[in-house]
Design a protein around this nucleic acid. Structure first.
Length: 424
RNA sequence: GGAGAGGUGGCCGAGCGGCUGAAGGCACCGCUCUCGAAAAGCGGCAUCCUGCCACAAGCGGGAUCGUGGGUUCAAAUCCCACCCUCUCCGCCA
Protein backbone atom coordinates (compact mmCIF):
# COMPACT_ATOMS: atom_id res chain seq x y z
CA UNK A 1 0.00 0.00 0.00
CA UNK A 2 1.27 3.41 -0.92
CA UNK A 3 1.29 6.32 1.50
CA UNK A 4 -1.88 8.39 1.06
CA UNK A 5 -0.03 11.54 1.99
CA UNK A 6 2.57 10.82 -0.64
CA UNK A 7 -0.09 10.36 -3.29
CA UNK A 8 -1.84 13.52 -2.17
CA UNK A 9 1.28 15.61 -2.43
CA UNK A 10 3.03 13.89 -5.33
CA UNK A 11 0.20 12.70 -7.50
CA UNK A 12 2.01 13.24 -10.76
CA UNK A 13 5.22 11.61 -9.56
CA UNK A 14 3.22 8.59 -8.42
CA UNK A 15 1.42 8.34 -11.74
CA UNK A 16 4.69 8.64 -13.62
CA UNK A 17 6.26 5.88 -11.52
CA UNK A 18 3.27 3.62 -12.10
CA UNK A 19 3.49 4.32 -15.80
CA UNK A 20 6.99 2.87 -15.78
CA UNK A 21 5.41 -0.40 -14.70
CA UNK A 22 3.27 -0.23 -17.79
CA UNK A 23 0.16 0.67 -15.85
CA UNK A 24 -1.98 3.68 -16.57
CA UNK A 25 -3.27 5.18 -13.36
CA UNK A 26 -5.36 8.28 -13.09
CA UNK A 27 -5.24 9.08 -9.42
CA UNK A 28 -7.44 12.19 -9.64
CA UNK A 29 -10.55 10.17 -8.84
CA UNK A 30 -8.85 8.71 -5.83
CA UNK A 31 -7.74 12.19 -4.76
CA UNK A 32 -11.31 13.40 -4.99
CA UNK A 33 -12.74 10.57 -2.92
CA UNK A 34 -10.01 10.93 -0.39
CA UNK A 35 -10.62 14.68 -0.12
CA UNK A 36 -14.34 14.08 0.37
CA UNK A 37 -13.57 11.57 3.09
CA UNK A 38 -11.37 14.07 4.88
CA UNK A 39 -14.01 16.78 4.64
CA UNK A 40 -16.55 14.40 6.15
CA UNK A 41 -14.09 13.49 8.85
CA UNK A 42 -13.69 17.12 9.81
CA UNK A 43 -17.43 17.64 10.08
CA UNK A 44 -17.77 14.47 12.08
CA UNK A 45 -14.99 15.38 14.47
CA UNK A 46 -16.44 18.82 15.03
CA UNK A 47 -19.81 17.28 15.84
CA UNK A 48 -18.29 14.71 18.16
CA UNK A 49 -16.38 17.51 19.88
CA UNK A 50 -19.61 19.37 20.61
CA UNK A 51 -21.30 16.22 21.78
CA UNK A 52 -18.42 15.36 24.07
CA UNK A 53 -18.50 18.86 25.54
CA UNK A 54 -22.23 18.63 26.16
CA UNK A 55 -21.82 15.23 27.81
CA UNK A 56 -19.21 16.65 30.14
CA UNK A 57 -21.55 19.51 30.89
CA UNK A 58 -24.37 17.07 31.68
CA UNK A 59 -22.11 15.18 34.05
CA UNK A 60 -21.18 18.41 35.85
CA UNK A 61 -24.79 19.59 36.10
CA UNK A 62 -25.95 16.23 37.40
CA UNK A 63 -23.37 16.36 40.13
CA UNK A 64 -24.77 19.73 41.11
CA UNK A 65 -28.30 18.41 40.96
CA UNK A 66 -29.44 20.56 38.02
CA UNK A 67 -31.97 19.61 35.40
CA UNK A 68 -30.25 18.24 32.29
CA UNK A 69 -33.25 17.19 30.20
CA UNK A 70 -32.79 19.88 27.55
CA UNK A 71 -29.12 19.17 27.01
CA UNK A 72 -29.75 15.45 26.89
CA UNK A 73 -32.39 15.91 24.25
CA UNK A 74 -30.06 18.05 22.18
CA UNK A 75 -27.31 15.46 22.43
CA UNK A 76 -29.66 12.71 21.43
CA UNK A 77 -30.15 14.54 18.17
CA UNK A 78 -26.47 15.12 17.51
CA UNK A 79 -25.90 11.45 18.28
CA UNK A 80 -28.16 10.55 15.39
CA UNK A 81 -26.34 13.00 13.15
CA UNK A 82 -23.01 11.49 14.19
CA UNK A 83 -24.22 8.08 13.07
CA UNK A 84 -25.21 9.46 9.67
CA UNK A 85 -21.84 11.10 9.17
CA UNK A 86 -20.03 7.98 10.31
CA UNK A 87 -21.85 5.90 7.73
CA UNK A 88 -21.09 8.40 4.97
CA UNK A 89 -17.46 8.59 6.01
CA UNK A 90 -17.10 4.84 6.14
CA UNK A 91 -18.46 4.55 2.63
CA UNK A 92 -15.94 7.03 1.26
CA UNK A 93 -13.08 5.52 3.18
CA UNK A 94 -13.93 2.02 1.99
CA UNK A 95 -13.97 3.28 -1.57
CA UNK A 96 -10.61 5.02 -1.17
CA UNK A 97 -9.16 1.98 0.56
CA UNK A 98 -10.31 -0.32 -2.22
CA UNK A 99 -8.52 1.77 -4.81
CA UNK A 100 -5.45 2.15 -2.67
CA UNK A 101 -5.16 -1.61 -2.06
CA UNK A 102 -5.15 -2.19 -5.79
CA UNK A 103 -2.28 0.16 -6.57
CA UNK A 104 1.07 -1.62 -6.96
CA UNK A 105 4.29 -0.45 -5.38
CA UNK A 106 6.42 2.20 -7.08
CA UNK A 107 9.65 0.98 -8.64
CA UNK A 108 12.88 2.14 -7.02
CA UNK A 109 14.94 4.66 -8.99
CA UNK A 110 17.62 2.03 -9.66
CA UNK A 111 15.20 -0.33 -11.42
CA UNK A 112 15.80 -0.42 -15.18
CA UNK A 113 12.83 0.80 -17.19
CA UNK A 114 11.39 -1.83 -19.49
CA UNK A 115 8.21 -3.37 -20.77
CA UNK A 116 8.48 -7.07 -19.93
CA UNK A 117 10.85 -9.92 -19.14
CA UNK A 118 12.73 -9.40 -22.37
CA UNK A 119 14.02 -6.12 -20.95
CA UNK A 120 15.51 -7.61 -17.78
CA UNK A 121 19.27 -6.98 -17.84
CA UNK A 122 21.65 -9.70 -16.66
CA UNK A 123 23.52 -8.54 -13.59
CA UNK A 124 26.02 -11.40 -13.49
CA UNK A 125 26.43 -14.99 -14.53
CA UNK A 126 28.26 -17.49 -12.35
CA UNK A 127 29.56 -20.73 -13.80
CA UNK A 128 29.27 -21.89 -17.38
CA UNK A 129 26.26 -23.73 -18.81
CA UNK A 130 26.99 -27.40 -18.21
CA UNK A 131 28.60 -29.11 -21.21
CA UNK A 132 27.66 -32.69 -22.13
CA UNK A 133 29.13 -35.18 -24.58
CA UNK A 134 25.70 -36.77 -24.86
CA UNK A 135 22.13 -35.56 -25.08
CA UNK A 136 21.10 -34.47 -21.59
CA UNK A 137 17.74 -35.82 -20.50
CA UNK A 138 15.05 -33.69 -18.93
CA UNK A 139 14.73 -34.21 -15.19
CA UNK A 140 11.35 -35.89 -15.43
CA UNK A 141 12.88 -38.68 -17.52
CA UNK A 142 15.87 -39.01 -15.22
CA UNK A 143 13.62 -38.97 -12.17
CA UNK A 144 11.42 -41.66 -13.65
CA UNK A 145 14.35 -43.81 -14.77
CA UNK A 146 15.89 -43.59 -11.32
CA UNK A 147 12.60 -44.47 -9.70
CA UNK A 148 12.67 -41.40 -7.48
CA UNK A 149 9.97 -39.29 -9.06
CA UNK A 150 6.48 -40.46 -10.02
CA UNK A 151 4.30 -37.68 -11.34
CA UNK A 152 1.81 -40.08 -12.93
CA UNK A 153 0.94 -41.65 -9.61
CA UNK A 154 0.82 -38.22 -8.01
CA UNK A 155 -1.83 -37.31 -10.54
CA UNK A 156 -3.81 -40.35 -9.49
CA UNK A 157 -3.60 -39.37 -5.84
CA UNK A 158 -4.52 -35.77 -6.39
CA UNK A 159 -4.41 -34.44 -9.92
CA UNK A 160 -1.95 -32.89 -12.32
CA UNK A 161 0.97 -30.83 -11.07
CA UNK A 162 1.59 -32.54 -7.76
CA UNK A 163 4.89 -34.14 -6.78
CA UNK A 164 5.60 -37.63 -5.51
CA UNK A 165 9.15 -38.51 -4.55
CA UNK A 166 10.49 -41.93 -3.65
CA UNK A 167 13.56 -43.26 -1.90
CA UNK A 168 16.72 -41.33 -2.64
CA UNK A 169 14.60 -38.71 -4.35
CA UNK A 170 12.64 -37.99 -1.20
CA UNK A 171 15.93 -38.02 0.70
CA UNK A 172 17.51 -35.61 -1.77
CA UNK A 173 14.60 -33.19 -1.42
CA UNK A 174 14.92 -33.39 2.36
CA UNK A 175 18.70 -33.01 2.17
CA UNK A 176 18.30 -29.85 0.12
CA UNK A 177 15.94 -28.38 2.69
CA UNK A 178 18.35 -29.19 5.52
CA UNK A 179 21.36 -27.92 3.64
CA UNK A 180 19.67 -24.63 2.81
CA UNK A 181 18.34 -24.07 6.32
CA UNK A 182 21.65 -25.01 7.93
CA UNK A 183 23.57 -22.64 5.68
CA UNK A 184 21.25 -19.72 6.31
CA UNK A 185 20.99 -20.24 10.05
CA UNK A 186 24.58 -21.18 10.85
CA UNK A 187 26.43 -19.01 8.38
CA UNK A 188 24.15 -16.22 7.24
CA UNK A 189 22.62 -15.27 10.58
CA UNK A 190 18.97 -16.09 9.94
CA UNK A 191 16.69 -17.49 12.60
CA UNK A 192 14.80 -20.58 11.57
CA UNK A 193 11.02 -20.51 11.85
CA UNK A 194 8.42 -23.11 11.02
CA UNK A 195 5.19 -21.20 10.44
CA UNK A 196 1.59 -22.18 9.73
CA UNK A 197 0.95 -23.31 6.16
CA UNK A 198 -2.57 -21.93 6.25
CA UNK A 199 -3.22 -18.24 6.88
CA UNK A 200 -6.19 -15.94 7.18
CA UNK A 201 -7.31 -13.15 4.88
CA UNK A 202 -5.66 -10.43 6.93
CA UNK A 203 -2.24 -12.01 6.53
CA UNK A 204 -2.73 -12.49 2.79
CA UNK A 205 -3.74 -8.84 2.52
CA UNK A 206 -0.76 -7.73 4.58
CA UNK A 207 1.79 -9.07 2.13
CA UNK A 208 -0.22 -8.07 -0.95
CA UNK A 209 -1.54 -11.38 -2.32
CA UNK A 210 -5.02 -10.09 -1.56
CA UNK A 211 -7.29 -8.55 -2.60
CA UNK A 212 -5.98 -8.67 -6.16
CA UNK A 213 -4.74 -12.22 -6.64
CA UNK A 214 -7.28 -14.45 -4.97
CA UNK A 215 -7.55 -16.57 -8.12
CA UNK A 216 -3.92 -17.66 -7.67
CA UNK A 217 -4.59 -19.10 -4.22
CA UNK A 218 -6.10 -22.25 -2.80
CA UNK A 219 -8.87 -21.28 -0.42
CA UNK A 220 -10.30 -23.54 2.25
CA UNK A 221 -13.93 -24.27 1.71
CA UNK A 222 -16.22 -22.63 4.23
CA UNK A 223 -13.38 -20.76 5.95
CA UNK A 224 -11.63 -17.51 5.22
CA UNK A 225 -8.31 -19.37 5.24
CA UNK A 226 -5.85 -19.93 2.43
CA UNK A 227 -2.99 -22.32 1.73
CA UNK A 228 0.20 -20.27 1.62
CA UNK A 229 1.70 -19.65 -1.82
CA UNK A 230 5.03 -18.83 -0.16
CA UNK A 231 6.46 -18.65 3.37
CA UNK A 232 6.70 -14.91 2.81
CA UNK A 233 3.08 -14.63 3.92
CA UNK A 234 3.16 -16.23 7.37
CA UNK A 235 6.72 -15.14 8.13
CA UNK A 236 6.28 -11.47 7.19
CA UNK A 237 3.09 -11.41 9.21
CA UNK A 238 4.90 -12.65 12.32
CA UNK A 239 5.41 -9.00 13.21
CA UNK A 240 2.13 -7.62 11.90
CA UNK A 241 0.73 -4.97 14.23
CA UNK A 242 3.98 -4.74 16.15
CA UNK A 243 6.42 -1.97 16.92
CA UNK A 244 9.96 -3.32 16.83
CA UNK A 245 12.88 -1.80 18.70
CA UNK A 246 15.49 -0.21 16.47
CA UNK A 247 18.20 -2.31 18.13
CA UNK A 248 16.37 -5.50 17.22
CA UNK A 249 16.72 -4.74 13.50
CA UNK A 250 17.41 -6.24 11.13
CA UNK A 251 15.28 -9.25 11.98
CA UNK A 252 16.18 -12.11 9.64
CA UNK A 253 14.17 -15.30 9.34
CA UNK A 254 14.49 -18.37 7.21
CA UNK A 255 11.67 -20.83 6.85
CA UNK A 256 11.02 -24.06 5.06
CA UNK A 257 7.43 -24.50 3.93
CA UNK A 258 5.54 -26.22 1.19
CA UNK A 259 3.94 -23.68 -1.13
CA UNK A 260 0.58 -24.00 -2.84
CA UNK A 261 -0.33 -22.16 -6.01
CA UNK A 262 -3.34 -22.70 -8.17
CA UNK A 263 -1.38 -21.65 -11.27
CA UNK A 264 -4.58 -20.40 -12.79
CA UNK A 265 -3.99 -19.20 -16.32
CA UNK A 266 -0.80 -21.20 -16.90
CA UNK A 267 -2.32 -24.35 -18.34
CA UNK A 268 -0.02 -24.65 -21.30
CA UNK A 269 3.21 -23.72 -19.52
CA UNK A 270 5.74 -26.18 -18.16
CA UNK A 271 3.30 -29.03 -18.20
CA UNK A 272 6.01 -31.60 -17.59
CA UNK A 273 8.31 -32.02 -14.65
CA UNK A 274 8.85 -30.14 -11.46
CA UNK A 275 9.07 -26.59 -12.76
CA UNK A 276 5.45 -25.62 -12.26
CA UNK A 277 3.56 -27.51 -9.59
CA UNK A 278 0.55 -26.77 -7.42
CA UNK A 279 2.61 -27.84 -4.43
CA UNK A 280 6.35 -27.37 -4.02
CA UNK A 281 8.88 -26.94 -1.27
CA UNK A 282 10.74 -23.71 -0.70
CA UNK A 283 13.19 -22.30 1.80
CA UNK A 284 12.48 -18.62 2.20
CA UNK A 285 14.52 -15.71 3.51
CA UNK A 286 12.69 -12.79 5.12
CA UNK A 287 14.09 -9.57 6.55
CA UNK A 288 12.71 -6.63 8.47
CA UNK A 289 15.06 -3.65 8.54
CA UNK A 290 15.49 0.10 8.88
CA UNK A 291 14.52 2.02 5.74
CA UNK A 292 18.00 3.42 5.22
CA UNK A 293 19.48 -0.10 5.14
CA UNK A 294 17.02 -1.94 2.95
CA UNK A 295 18.93 -1.79 -0.32
CA UNK A 296 22.13 -2.99 1.32
CA UNK A 297 20.07 -5.75 2.93
CA UNK A 298 18.65 -6.69 -0.46
CA UNK A 299 22.15 -7.15 -1.86
CA UNK A 300 23.19 -9.36 1.05
CA UNK A 301 19.99 -11.38 0.86
CA UNK A 302 20.66 -11.96 -2.81
CA UNK A 303 24.19 -13.14 -2.04
CA UNK A 304 22.85 -15.46 0.66
CA UNK A 305 20.55 -17.09 -1.88
CA UNK A 306 23.29 -17.27 -4.52
CA UNK A 307 25.59 -18.95 -2.04
CA UNK A 308 23.39 -22.04 -2.10
CA UNK A 309 23.83 -22.41 -5.86
CA UNK A 310 27.55 -21.74 -5.62
CA UNK A 311 27.98 -24.51 -3.09
CA UNK A 312 25.87 -26.89 -5.12
CA UNK A 313 28.04 -25.88 -8.09
CA UNK A 314 25.04 -25.14 -10.26
CA UNK A 315 25.53 -22.55 -13.01
CA UNK A 316 23.27 -19.56 -12.67
CA UNK A 317 22.78 -15.94 -13.50
CA UNK A 318 21.18 -13.00 -11.76
CA UNK A 319 18.86 -10.65 -13.57
CA UNK A 320 17.35 -7.38 -12.44
CA UNK A 321 13.66 -7.25 -13.10
CA UNK A 322 12.76 -4.21 -15.15
CA UNK A 323 9.90 -1.92 -14.17
CA UNK A 324 7.43 -3.74 -16.41
CA UNK A 325 8.18 -7.16 -14.93
CA UNK A 326 8.07 -6.19 -11.26
CA UNK A 327 5.70 -7.97 -8.91
CA UNK A 328 2.78 -6.11 -7.38
CA UNK A 329 4.29 -5.41 -3.96
CA UNK A 330 7.92 -5.05 -4.96
CA UNK A 331 10.00 -1.91 -5.39
CA UNK A 332 12.98 -3.85 -6.71
CA UNK A 333 13.52 -7.50 -7.53
CA UNK A 334 16.44 -9.66 -8.57
CA UNK A 335 15.71 -13.06 -10.00
CA UNK A 336 18.24 -15.86 -9.78
CA UNK A 337 18.02 -18.25 -12.68
CA UNK A 338 19.60 -21.68 -12.77
CA UNK A 339 20.82 -23.37 -15.92
CA UNK A 340 18.50 -26.11 -17.13
CA UNK A 341 20.37 -28.23 -19.72
CA UNK A 342 17.35 -30.01 -21.18
CA UNK A 343 15.73 -26.69 -21.98
CA UNK A 344 18.96 -24.96 -22.92
CA UNK A 345 18.00 -21.93 -20.86
CA UNK A 346 18.10 -20.36 -17.45
CA UNK A 347 15.01 -20.80 -15.28
CA UNK A 348 13.96 -18.82 -12.24
CA UNK A 349 14.91 -20.48 -8.99
CA UNK A 350 14.75 -17.49 -6.65
CA UNK A 351 13.22 -14.08 -6.55
CA UNK A 352 14.67 -11.54 -4.11
CA UNK A 353 12.71 -8.38 -3.46
CA UNK A 354 12.70 -5.21 -1.44
CA UNK A 355 9.15 -4.16 -0.71
CA UNK A 356 10.24 -1.05 1.13
CA UNK A 357 7.33 0.02 3.35
CA UNK A 358 4.60 -1.31 1.04
CA UNK A 359 3.91 -4.47 3.03
CA UNK A 360 4.80 -2.86 6.35
CA UNK A 361 2.08 -0.26 5.85
CA UNK A 362 -0.50 -2.91 5.06
CA UNK A 363 0.53 -5.23 7.87
CA UNK A 364 1.36 -2.38 10.30
CA UNK A 365 4.92 -3.41 11.00
CA UNK A 366 6.71 -0.48 12.60
CA UNK A 367 9.83 0.38 14.54
CA UNK A 368 10.80 2.93 17.12
CA UNK A 369 14.14 4.70 17.15
CA UNK A 370 15.98 4.77 20.42
CA UNK A 371 15.43 7.99 22.37
CA UNK A 372 13.06 9.37 19.74
CA UNK A 373 9.34 9.53 19.90
CA UNK A 374 7.09 8.38 17.14
CA UNK A 375 7.34 5.33 14.95
CA UNK A 376 8.29 4.51 11.40
CA UNK A 377 7.48 1.70 9.01
CA UNK A 378 10.13 -0.97 8.61
CA UNK A 379 11.18 -2.14 5.21
CA UNK A 380 10.47 -5.80 4.42
CA UNK A 381 12.40 -8.01 2.05
CA UNK A 382 12.30 -11.60 1.04
CA UNK A 383 13.78 -14.05 -1.35
CA UNK A 384 13.76 -17.73 -2.09
CA UNK A 385 16.78 -19.44 -0.73
CA UNK A 386 15.86 -21.50 -2.79
CA UNK A 387 12.91 -23.12 -4.51
CA UNK A 388 13.65 -26.72 -3.58
CA UNK A 389 11.78 -28.54 -6.34
CA UNK A 390 13.49 -26.54 -9.03
CA UNK A 391 16.85 -27.07 -7.34
CA UNK A 392 16.13 -30.81 -7.37
CA UNK A 393 15.36 -30.61 -11.08
CA UNK A 394 18.52 -28.61 -11.75
CA UNK A 395 20.64 -31.19 -9.95
CA UNK A 396 19.11 -34.04 -11.92
CA UNK A 397 19.78 -32.25 -15.17
CA UNK A 398 23.17 -30.66 -14.56
CA UNK A 399 24.78 -33.57 -12.78
CA UNK A 400 23.47 -36.45 -14.88
CA UNK A 401 26.01 -38.85 -16.31
CA UNK A 402 26.00 -40.73 -19.56
CA UNK A 403 25.23 -43.98 -17.70
CA UNK A 404 22.06 -42.49 -16.25
CA UNK A 405 23.37 -41.89 -12.76
CA UNK A 406 23.29 -38.47 -11.14
CA UNK A 407 26.20 -37.22 -9.08
CA UNK A 408 25.09 -35.81 -5.76
CA UNK A 409 26.72 -32.42 -4.96
CA UNK A 410 29.36 -32.86 -2.28
CA UNK A 411 27.74 -30.44 0.14
CA UNK A 412 24.60 -32.60 0.21
CA UNK A 413 26.32 -35.89 0.88
CA UNK A 414 26.56 -35.41 4.67
CA UNK A 415 22.80 -34.89 4.62
CA UNK A 416 22.31 -38.16 2.70
CA UNK A 417 24.31 -40.60 4.71
CA UNK A 418 27.33 -40.16 2.47
CA UNK A 419 25.55 -41.17 -0.73
CA UNK A 420 27.57 -39.99 -3.75
CA UNK A 421 25.25 -40.68 -6.65
CA UNK A 422 21.70 -41.53 -7.54
CA UNK A 423 21.66 -44.88 -9.35
CA UNK A 424 18.87 -46.78 -11.05
C1' G B 1 -16.97 -31.43 21.21
C1' G B 2 -18.70 -30.22 26.77
C1' A B 3 -17.92 -27.04 31.35
C1' G B 4 -15.60 -22.85 33.47
C1' A B 5 -12.23 -18.44 33.65
C1' G B 6 -10.27 -14.51 31.10
C1' G B 7 -8.65 -10.89 27.02
C1' U B 8 -6.73 -3.27 29.61
C1' G B 9 -0.55 0.61 27.57
C1' G B 10 6.54 -2.45 26.16
C1' C B 11 5.39 -5.98 30.52
C1' C B 12 2.54 -6.91 35.21
C1' G B 13 -1.91 -5.12 36.99
C1' A B 14 -6.24 -1.77 39.02
C1' G B 15 -10.70 0.07 37.20
C1' C B 16 -16.56 -2.25 36.39
C1' G B 17 -21.65 3.93 33.66
C1' G B 18 -19.57 10.46 33.78
C1' C B 19 -14.10 14.14 36.70
C1' U B 20 -10.22 7.35 33.30
C1' G B 21 -6.30 7.40 27.50
C1' A B 22 -6.77 4.83 31.68
C1' A B 23 -4.32 4.15 39.32
C1' G B 24 -0.02 1.51 41.00
C1' G B 25 4.36 -1.28 39.90
C1' C B 26 8.29 -2.90 36.50
C1' A B 27 11.08 -1.61 32.23
C1' C B 28 12.90 2.57 29.51
C1' C B 29 14.71 7.94 28.88
C1' G B 30 16.32 12.60 31.14
C1' C B 31 17.87 15.36 35.58
C1' U B 32 19.51 15.75 40.92
C1' C B 33 22.85 13.38 44.29
C1' U B 34 28.01 10.83 43.59
C1' C B 35 35.05 10.84 42.00
C1' G B 36 32.06 7.10 39.32
C1' A B 37 28.40 3.36 39.91
C1' A B 38 24.46 1.49 42.82
C1' A B 39 20.56 3.22 45.84
C1' A B 40 17.30 7.25 46.52
C1' G B 41 14.58 11.57 44.77
C1' C B 42 12.30 14.56 40.72
C1' G B 43 10.37 14.61 35.84
C1' G B 44 9.07 12.21 31.22
C1' C B 45 7.24 7.98 28.65
C1' A B 46 0.82 4.44 24.03
C1' U B 47 -0.86 4.39 18.98
C1' C B 48 -3.47 6.11 14.79
C1' C B 49 -6.10 9.96 12.27
C1' U B 50 -7.01 15.08 11.73
C1' G B 51 -6.97 21.03 11.82
C1' C B 52 -3.56 25.41 11.89
C1' C B 53 1.41 24.57 9.71
C1' A B 54 6.79 23.44 6.04
C1' C B 55 4.70 15.84 5.88
C1' A B 56 9.28 20.37 11.62
C1' A B 57 8.26 22.16 16.45
C1' G B 58 4.07 23.63 18.90
C1' C B 59 -1.01 24.05 19.96
C1' G B 60 -6.15 22.22 19.17
C1' G B 61 -9.62 18.12 17.99
C1' G B 62 -11.20 12.94 17.18
C1' A B 63 -10.61 7.70 17.73
C1' U B 64 -8.59 3.40 20.13
C1' C B 65 -9.03 -0.87 26.82
C1' G B 66 -9.67 -8.63 21.69
C1' U B 67 -13.24 -7.63 17.07
C1' G B 68 -18.01 -6.08 15.43
C1' G B 69 -22.83 -4.48 16.73
C1' G B 70 -26.39 -2.59 20.52
C1' U B 71 -28.34 0.22 25.03
C1' U B 72 -27.38 5.36 26.97
C1' C B 73 -27.05 12.39 26.87
C1' A B 74 -22.42 9.52 28.22
C1' A B 75 -19.39 2.72 27.75
C1' A B 76 -12.83 -0.03 29.38
C1' U B 77 -17.22 -0.44 32.48
C1' C B 78 -24.10 -2.81 30.76
C1' C B 79 -26.24 -6.24 26.62
C1' C B 80 -25.52 -9.46 22.07
C1' A B 81 -22.48 -11.99 18.48
C1' C B 82 -17.81 -13.50 16.98
C1' C B 83 -12.43 -14.34 17.63
C1' C B 84 -8.51 -15.71 20.77
C1' U B 85 -6.02 -17.52 25.41
C1' C B 86 -6.00 -20.51 29.86
C1' U B 87 -8.00 -24.67 33.17
C1' C B 88 -10.80 -29.26 33.57
C1' C B 89 -13.45 -33.37 30.94
C1' G B 90 -14.02 -36.11 26.33
C1' C B 91 -11.72 -37.38 21.69
C1' C B 92 -7.29 -37.67 19.06
C1' A B 93 -1.68 -37.53 15.61
Amino acid sequence: MLDIKFIRQNTEAAEAALKKRGEKWDLSEFRGIEAQARALLQDLEELRFQRNQASAEIARMKREGQDTAALMEKNRESGARVKELEAALEEKQALAQEILMGIPNLPHASVPVGADEKDNPVLRAVGEPTAFDFDPKPHWDTGKDLGILDLERAARITGSRFPLYFGAGAALERALISFMLDTHTREHGYKEVLPPFIVNRTSMTGTGQLPKFEQDLFKLEGLDYFLIPTAEVPVTNIHADEILDEEALPVCYTAYTPCFRSEAGSHGKDTRGLIRQHQFNKVELVKFCLPENSYAELESLLLNAEEILKRLKLPYRVITLCTGDLGFSSAKTYDIEVWMPSQGMYREISSCSNFEDFQARRAKIRFRRKGKKGTGLVHTLNGSGLAVGRTFAAILENFQQKDGTVTIPEVLRPHMGGMEALRP
